[in-house]
């Protein structure tokens, strides 16, 4: 019995060690989305003034599309902006923006200063549509397949690594699929 007490620290440690080992398979930044593989929510957003088109669920069908939720007040959005620009301008992926809880003037200013890589931008001024999308915070990015289903979600800024290792292969695969 006394020996068991001295064995206890080892047993506890083995438990912790196993948890660590299993922990490697998980990414703490990877927040699950209930919407994966489900159709994107039904919505229509008016365009940001000065832009021809807004964004609606009908527009997401047909081509593989990236939907990027951004705001001018969000600092990580600024950080990911070059990555979005590269995706759109250099890699030929259609990126549509949802401008989240922003002031129109601020958003237009921001786009003027940082460049506008979006095919179209929907203004979600009160954040109502973003609730349907399950937005945790900005920025967030969704990959939509040709049938308009959400296939991938990134919470937080896109990094070149995520683009190269996850988004681009998936875009290629989804384009080839149908």
């Amino acid at each position: 019995m006394r020996r068991l007490i001295f064995l206890l620290p080892l047993l506890l440690f083995v438990g912790v060690g196993v948890a660590f080992l299993l922990g490697f398979e998980r990414d703490p930044r990877d927040i699950p989305s209930a919407l994966i593989d489900k159709p994107a929510p039904d919505f229509t957003l008016p365009p940001l003034p000065g832009h021809k088109e807004g964004v609606s669920s009908a527009m997401l069908k047909g081509d593989v599309t990236l939907v990027n939720v951004f705001a001018s007040w969000c600092i990580p959005c600024k950080a990911e902006h070059p990555v979005i620009t590269r995706l759109s301008k250099e890699l030929g992926v259609t990126v549509r923006g949802i401008n989240y809880k922003d002031k129109t003037g601020d958003a237009l200013d921001w786009l003027k200063r940082n460049g506008d890589p979006y095919a179209s931008i929907g203004a979600d001024l009160d954040g109502r549509v973003s609730i349907d999308w399950g937005v945790y915070g900005v920025p967030e990015t969704y990959l939509i397949d040709r049938q308009g289903r959400i296939r991938f979600k990134q919470v937080g800024p896109l990094t070149p690594q995520v683009v190269d290792e996850q988004i681009l292969p998936m875009v290629k695969h989804l384009r080839a699929a149908s």
Partner: peptide, 28 residues
């Protein structure tokens, strides 16, 4: 870098696991 984490985990396992094993044998 997760790959390095595995190595340190193994180190941790040997150092802590080994010493705790020794402890359970010798401490009583």
């Amino acid at each position: 870098d997760p790959a390095r984490g595995v190595f340190i985990l193994v180190l941790l396992g040997i150092a802590t696991g080994g010493s705790l094993l020794l402890y359970s044998l010798r401490a009583p």
